[in-house]
Nucleic acid binder design. Structure first.
Lengths: 368, 368
DNA sequence: CCCGTCTTCTTCATCGATGAAGCACGCACG
DNA sequence: CGTGCGTGCTTCATCGATGAAGAAGACGGG
């Protein structure tokens, strides 16, 4: 039984054994056209015999300056990503492009310790980075820029913020969250709702206590997505003559049904009782629907609920929402990154289309 | 505007600029305790000034023999993985363990070209590998073993097969598929069903034409999971006195609702018409339910349908199934791999528990 | 018969860092 | 005052490969 810590067989060892140069062995594996077929066979046979596993990818990567992997870093780490259908969908899109190109996807670990979080990004062995959903003040972005690797930013921070950070022209992929949010809100207003409420996920990377937040706090969110969706709701509300200061806005932590349920309960406890809930994501809306059911409210007769994303459970729940092309977002981000890696030019910011999807969770405002 | 192809600033450059040794600069970043705080500050300041991004992870990895990432390779590649709730759940479990340990997850790309598929595995820059769901004859396993890295195998091939391939003692994580399958089949038999049918996903890595397969072909599946679940159903059937040769067994390609619907349609067209469908996965069962609805069959009055996995949509569909602890599987695989990397001993094969979950998609056999 | 061009293999330098060991100095202690 | 030891920094070798350039023989053309 071979030792677990056996010294690995190197390319040199194979070369020496066969009496050829190291470069020839290297070529046998990486550039078959550079040597005769017969010698190549001999080399491979010797390699097999010695148990040489082929060129060490790490060493080859160092020399070549390429490792064949792109890194994906998220605001809140992997574990969360796999529980969020939107994140999974994004990764599905990215992998659909990376895979045929032979590129691996390295999921960069997050951490509650800011230092380890940055260290993980700095030490990721990748050819390029996709950075997604960071708050405006997240130092992770600076760390990503510092790597000097090709970089694509998704959703947030916005391009203007990237320019301010000294990285203008960084490829960016996202949607017009503000307009999209205004569209859902407009839909509810068109249905006659005048007592709106909002259920939001986090506003800052470093969480603040969940609860109701005033207009000023809404505009101060350092997550641009949060900020812009709020602003979009407000745009539509103000356009319809609403006093936005009177609209209860709850913000919680993550984008989960639990937070959504808590948020819905909180805003439904305000007076006058809202007739329509604007949720910043479908998962929040999922929780809101649950809370409504718990309160004995009929949807949409007593309460309308709208989401955002059009993610996996939305259709099943009959949820009115705004579709954003999440998978396409992943594909586009990966494609742009691979293009940059290949030296191909990439266009400026990519704003992908959104679309209002009306289902059964919204209806005319109750006459009350 | 700096050139895109600027020669990167190296540790040497910083050292030279400040008139200290390269090792000192290295220490400033990686071993702060090895130099005075003041010098460290100077080094970091100089590094910042020169735009040095910190030690190149690739080079550091080569020297240290560690890169802080574990590879995950799948039978059918990434793109598929993200569309399969079971695979996502597995990854969620793995990342939940890897992340706190500061380890990244490298998703190894698949390919339809067998050569590129092997090359991708051979060139993955990782410290260890998790290999999941390979067929018994898949050369990917040999490639993984050849890497000489710590390795954990999930589900299939089975430990006995690993031993036969010269890698006995390889950590393995999975469930007793045969017993689990026998449990669901037993449940249906207990309900009085005597005309069973099976809807299966692929039997071999290189797909063969979908359709009905006889007993011999069932036992010859090179996917051990497929083979064992079939065998489990058969065990229960034979135990109840069924003539298994008369049971229609459909096998298709992937584990998708589409295949499930096609399979259900195929077996329901046989005579005598089955009263219960055993599906090898919940996704197949999802399709089977759809097909039943299309045929105007009531579930479970006219037709009982059972799945396998207890994955995401199962509860929502009221699907009777066998729960396997997929997330735990991911956690266990990652934990075992990290343990091996840390030099800690790992126990032998891990057989995780399964549990029959009876919901509303199964009921007593129709009297007819 | 000579020269240019291929093919096939070799030599040399290099990718960018870090472990191990070494050296010089300062300080405490007997 | 000599010895012993910890601190702080340096030197040296090395991790395992590949690009660029070069040399030796084969081969074909004029």
């Amino acid at each position: 039984m071979p030792s677990d810590r056996a010294r690995p067989v190197t390319l040199q060892a194979v070369a020496h054994e066969l009496g050829v140069s190291a470069k020839t062995v290297s070529n046998a594996f990486s550039r078959p056209d550079q040597l005769s077929a017969s010698l190549r066979e001999q080399v491979l046979a010797t390699a097999r015999r010695l148990g040489y596993p082929g060129p060490n990818p790490l060493a080859a990567g160092l020399r070549r300056g390429r490792v064949g992997a792109i890194g994906v870093a998220y605001d809140n780490g992997l574990s969360y990503a796999f529980d969020d259908p939107v994140a999974v969908e994004f990764l599905a899109g990215a992998s659909a492009v990376a895979e045929p190109a032979g590129a691996g996807l390295l999921l960069v670990p997050g951490s509650t310790d800011p230092r380890r979080r940055l260290a993980a990004l700095s030490s990721a062995v990748v050819d390029g980075l996709v950075i997604s959903s960071l708050s405006d003040d997240d130092p992770l972005l600076a760390a990503a820029i510092a790597r000097g690797l090709p970089l694509v930013v998704v959703d947030q921070p916005r391009p203007d913020r990237l320019a301010a950070l000294g990285a203008p022209g960084t490829p960016w992929v996202g949607v017009d969250d503000r307009a999209a949010a205004a569209a859902v809100a407009g839909h509810l207003l068109d249905l006659g709702h005048r007592r709106l409420a909002v259920v939001s996920f986090g506003m800052h990377h470093d969480p603040i206590a969940p609860g109701l937040v005033d207009e000023q706090a809404q505009a101060a969110a350092t997550y641009a997505v949060t900020r812009d969706r709020m602003a979009g709701y407000r745009d539509a509300g103000v356009r319809a003559g609403l006093d936005w200061a009177g609209v209860p806005v709850f913000h919680g932590g993550d984008s989960t049904p639990e937070v959504g349920a808590a948020g819905a309960a909180a805003v439904l406890a305000t007076d006058p009782t809202p007739t329509a809930l604007l949720c910043l994501s479908d998962r929040l809306a999922e929780g809101a629907l649950r809370a409504a059911a718990d309160l004995g409210l009929r949807v949409p007769e007593d309460l309308s609920v709208a989401g955002f994303d059009d993610a996996t459970p939305a259709a099943g729940l009959g949820l009115t929402t705004v579709r954003q092309p999440t998978r396409l977002k992943g594909r586009t981000a990966a494609r742009d990154l691979l293009d940059r890696l290949a030296g191909r030019p990439v266009p400026g910011p990519r704003v992908l289309p959104t679309e209002l999807v009306v289902r059964t969770s919204t209806g005319p405002a109750p006459v009350s």
